[in-house]
């Protein structure tokens, strides 16, 4: 069980933790038994890997599969559209369009 108050484990089966308060790059996170520095800023309600996740593994949140890892994801890393895909329909984002506008 994570003890880090900035992270929530929604279901004991999950391999991700949900960020409950903004994380800054370099913050040291207590993920399971390890201490991991945050690789980048992570906004509220995004997900971090609870343990090492291999490419092809299901992402489990609420105890249910919510997608598949498209790359190996180390414990503590940001789990999102860059390393997860849907089993149903592709996820649409404006990330490639933002440029200087964001």
């Amino acid at each position: 069980m994570t003890e880090d108050p900035r992270l929530i484990l929604l279901d004991p089966r999950d391999n991700v933790l949900v960020v409950r308060a903004r994380i800054r790059a370099g913050d040291v996170l207590a993920v399971e038994d390890a201490s991991v520095p945050a690789e980048k800023d992570v906004p509220l309600a995004h997900k971090l890997a609870r343990r090492d996740i291999r490419a092809g593994e299901k992402i489990l949140k609420y105890g249910a599969p919510v997608g598949v890892a498209t790359a190996d994801i180390p414990a503590g890393a940001h789990v999102h559209v860059h390393n997860v895909r849907s089993d149903y329909t592709p996820t649409y984002t404006l990330d490639s369009q933002k440029g200087d506008a964001a």
Binding site: V18, V19, P43, L44, A45, H46, K47, I59, K61, A64, P65, V66, G67, V79, H80, V81, V84, R85, S86, D87, Y88, T89, T91, Y92, T93, D95
Partner: peptide
């Protein structure tokens, strides 16, 4: 939805 941390439709 993705900006807000949701990665997939099933999530």
């Amino acid at each position: 939805n993705a900006d807000g941390g949701l990665s997939t439709i099933e999530e």
